[in-house]
Design a protein around this nucleic acid. Sequence first.
DNA 1: GCAATCCCTACTATTTCAGTAGGGTATACT
DNA 2: AGTATACCCTACTGAAATAGTAGGGATTGC
Lengths: 148, 148
Amino acid sequence: MILSTKGRYGLKAAFELSKNYGFGPVPLKKVSEKYGISESYLEQLFAKLKKSGYIDTVRGPQGGYLLAKPPEEITVGMILRTLEGEITTSDCLSKEVCSRESICATRVIFEKIEKSINDVIDNITLADMYEEQKNILLEGKNEQEALS
Amino acid sequence: MILSTKGRYGLKAAFELSKNYGFGPVPLKKVSEKYGISESYLEQLFAKLKKSGYIDTVRGPQGGYLLAKPPEEITVGMILRTLEGEITTSDCLSKEVCSRESICATRVIFEKIEKSINDVIDNITLADMYEEQKNILLEGKNEQEALS
DNA sequence: GCAATCCCTACTATTTCAGTAGGGTATACT
DNA sequence: AGTATACCCTACTGAAATAGTAGGGATTGC
């Protein structure tokens, strides 16, 4: 599996916050219950996202988590990299350990794989996800459930 | 890291065999020394590739490993999947555990990531890698080293 | 003041990774 | 027939990552 639960849960949770963007903070409990994710585990994921500046928090009653920027400015890549680390395929791409880099045919393959992933995740924002979900649901004629 | 040493070593090793395609078997020791990979570890990777039908073996002196098919017929995806397992991003894509599949926005993202990876690895053969390496080296005017 | 909420650190069981170890079997060559 | 070369196979292992759990502490709205 390319992505661990960190990235998968984290993206779902971030998307949840983006749906509530402009309507105040969402408490952790609500998100964890909705997606069936352990509260404490999700808390750790949110802590990382906060540290990276993608979400803010409000403490006390009526508090919770909220996006620190509009959904248009947060990409899937930002979320996944924060939680999963840099998306790499091989040491020799990031570090200078490959002594024969000019002739390494596998290196080219690894670069292509990395590039294809990064092209996807860096060009989809949370706002795009929302739009896409709306479209899917309009087709399915199930808008009620879709935007819940 | 998306790929473990299994996939990375395995692809390098398979490429090595492809360069020798038509010239008889290559002993394990030669490959492991050339790439600095543990002999016993590489042996286990070759065992999997053999089980999948991508390589053959010849025992005894002058024996070794060789591709079971022409390099044109072996894709990077075949090698990587054999060694790393299916390239997936999320449970809900392969199994039927996602109860709300029609409305899951993250599911769409995961599908796109998977597709982009599979598009790359399923459309590059070992023969393509060889061609690419030749081109790189012609540009670098270092053909001698390149095809070694 | 108290309940709801986030904050922070430490612990843990399980699995995967990246090998190591050590024997066994087939076969080309002499 | 013997021997060295090579593949074959299984089991073991230290280290790290995964996917949480546990439990207390600090804010703050009401």
